[in-house]
Design a binder for these strands. Sequence first.
DNA 1: CGTCAACAGTTGCTTAACCGACACCTGATG
DNA 2: CATCAGGTGTCGGTTAAGCAACTGTTGACG
Lengths: 211, 211
Amino acid sequence: MNQPTRTELCRVNNAGDKMSVNPDDPRVRRTRQLLQNALTDLMGEMSFNQISVQDITTRAGVNRATFYAHFEDKYALVNYHVRHMFLEALQQRMPAKHEFSQATMRLFIVATAEFLRSFFGRCTPLDQLSYPQMAIQVQVVLYEMFLACQTQGHFPTATLSKSPETTATALSWLVFGATFDWAHGGLKTSVDELADGLLPYMTVGLHGAGV
Amino acid sequence: MNQPTRTELCRVNNAGDKMSVNPDDPRVRRTRQLLQNALTDLMGEMSFNQISVQDITTRAGVNRATFYAHFEDKYALVNYHVRHMFLEALQQRMPAKHEFSQATMRLFIVATAEFLRSFFGRCTPLDQLSYPQMAIQVQVVLYEMFLACQTQGHFPTATLSKSPETTATALSWLVFGATFDWAHGGLKTSVDELADGLLPYMTVGLHGAGV
DNA sequence: CGTCAACAGTTGCTTAACCGACACCTGATG
DNA sequence: CATCAGGTGTCGGTTAAGCAACTGTTGACG
């Protein structure tokens, strides 16, 4: 499975990381951190599809068999990595209590845009196949965040047009997709202008009845 | 053993690190590295005798019991650490083949001086007791190096006045002691001047008969 | 004086990481 | 065509790390 195959395409939304090990164990956290660091290192030096599991584990100082105790393959690792990094970036910018305001929406947009720019800016030019596969993990995280916002009660449920899942889907894809295009299209506008353009579509449910 | 006791004084030349574990195991190298990093961190923040084993292991993300699998106590760790750092600093400056020339001697002096200055410069002001105990590890390493130089044949044995051990003892103490005083006395001269002053005493055996 | 908190070491058991070896696949090379 | 090198994924046995709990010491405080 050195070349991207059909199976790769099926793994876009599939985590692929093993849950047989206890993620709270310090050894587990350490090992995953080492693998992630090795991956970022290598992605600064060569294209993702040139990188072998061998390379990653050697660089990390981790046994190859240990890798497979944590991840199904290198795609599972990179997906995990992107989700992890992005979640961290989000939580760093977000206030502890994020109510569902226009300001919060703007934060989501800005954080996403900054992340896509900085994360993929550090990589060697990415092959066409792996880029979307990685970036799309950002949408997964956004979906979870929007969903959590609502179910944790920080959301004015009275103004919801549909189910929380529908709202999360719509908003996450809107933010991710538009930001992805923006980053991919050469960052032609400022981040603020990007946000200004998107905000009206995100806050339709906020000031009254449904769509 | 929170306060330095009598036993501490007996441990100056005693390694104190356990050899029951295999030093080539990646996990062992990793754990020791983590403990060393934690120690340097903490020594930049507080005095050495304020630091508890607890502090070190917490900072390192290593279990306290694991600490004791590697080192007898925090003194054993700091000794190991100093030896390790200094050896690394030496090997970085030394040419692969170090014959016993005047130039090599100068390198030893300069490397030692630089190390003492940089290593202890990063620490919070050290208490009077722990400073010599740590620094003296430098002499231990120097002794081993001088000894290795001779037994590995890079030394003109014909010019030796005494046994290799005697030579190693004399030279290591000469270099360490003088450099220690230099570093401790406020670095009043340049490193080169320091070396110029010491070199004649170190090369008496090099140009002819014994002492 | 008692006691209370914090640290030092130690122990038995559990869990994760290491290691070597294996079968398998793939692409390059003679 | 054969085969050889290098990567993948898996397995069983060994070793180190984690964890919780324990005793013992020391210093502070009422």
